[in-house]
């Protein structure tokens, strides 16, 4: 807490520099990535043009998982060192991660239609990502239900850290579960190896997603930190006013 009162200025300065950099980078990378993905990469020899959904889908799935890892790391930092900024980061990352998870599920479903012939296939990866969405939602619901900021921070951190262990076991169990029945689909998501002509647009799109997430997180982090400071000032003012009233009466 004490480090929180001393640190925000420094963080604020840093964020003010980094936010436009991430924003600009995301814009440029998306421009290049989308151009490469849609106009300057060959169609897949099996999937044809629908392979282009991959350039939107795979980075979203990667961000969904990477942001959960970031959420868990931020929670760990808060839990051990009580760094309030880490808690704010965890609070801010969760809805962004959930949004990327929804995007991954949505684009995965769009990709599934031409590939599997159904909008939804209970395949191991899609199911794991669906469970990941539930984990995000549970975390956000728990935080929202706790009025006391400190309780929300501590309790949320414990849940987020337990979540990472859980997700590892879920991954294993879901793989096991889907192996009990061979799916009927012809092409698997992890089937064909990625050709180098597909690798470049994919890598650039992944970078673009990362910069977008970085921009969103920093932007939200800064506004959240400001809001916390305003709230603290208000509460202190109320507190002083109440004391003065009590002293008078």
């Amino acid at each position: 807490m004490l480090s929180y009162f001393s640190n925000p200025q420094r963080f604020d300065q840093l964020a003010r520099i980094l936010i436009p950099i991430f924003g600009a980078l995301a814009l440029v990378l998306f421009g290049v990535g989308v151009w490469l993905a849609f106009f300057n990469s060959p169609p897949d020899y099996q999937q044809g043009e629908t392979i282009r959904i991959m350039y939107v889908h795979v980075p979203a799935a990667y961000m969904a998982m990477a942001l959960y890892a970031a959420l868990a790391v931020a929670s760990f930092v808060y839990f051990v060192w009580r760094h309030a900024l880490a808690d704010t980061a965890a609070e801010v990352i969760a809805p962004i991660g959930a949004a990327f998870t929804i995007l991954a599920l949505f684009t995965g479903s769009l990709w599934g239609k031409p590939m599997w012939g159904t909008w939804w296939e209970w395949d191991a990866r899609m199911t794991s990502v669906l469970v990941l969405l539930l984990v995000y939602l549970g975390y956000m619901a728990l935080r929202a239900a706790l009025d006391d900021a400190q309780q929300a921070a501590r309790t949320g951190a414990i849940l987020a850290m337990a979540g990472i262990l859980n997700l590892v076991i879920v991954k294993f169990s879901v793989d096991w579960w889907s192996s009990l029945h061979q799916p009927a689909s012809v092409i698997r998501l992890d089937g064909p190896t990625i050709h180098s002509s597909q690798l470049w647009p994919l890598a650039i799109m992944a970078l673009a997603y990362t910069c977008l997430a970085g921009w969103l997180i920093l932007y939200r982090l800064r506004s959240q930190a400001l809001r916390r400071r305003v709230r603290a000032l208000q509460r202190r003012r109320d507190h002083v006013a109440r004391q003065r009233e009590e002293a008078v009466s």
């Binding site: 984990v135 979540g163 169990s173």
Partner: peptide, 14 residues
């Protein structure tokens, strides 16, 4: 229920 459901996935599967 929302918090516990994802954690119960493995044990349900097995």
């Amino acid at each position: 229920a929302l918090i516990a459901t994802p954690m119960m996935v493995p044990v349900l599967i097995f």
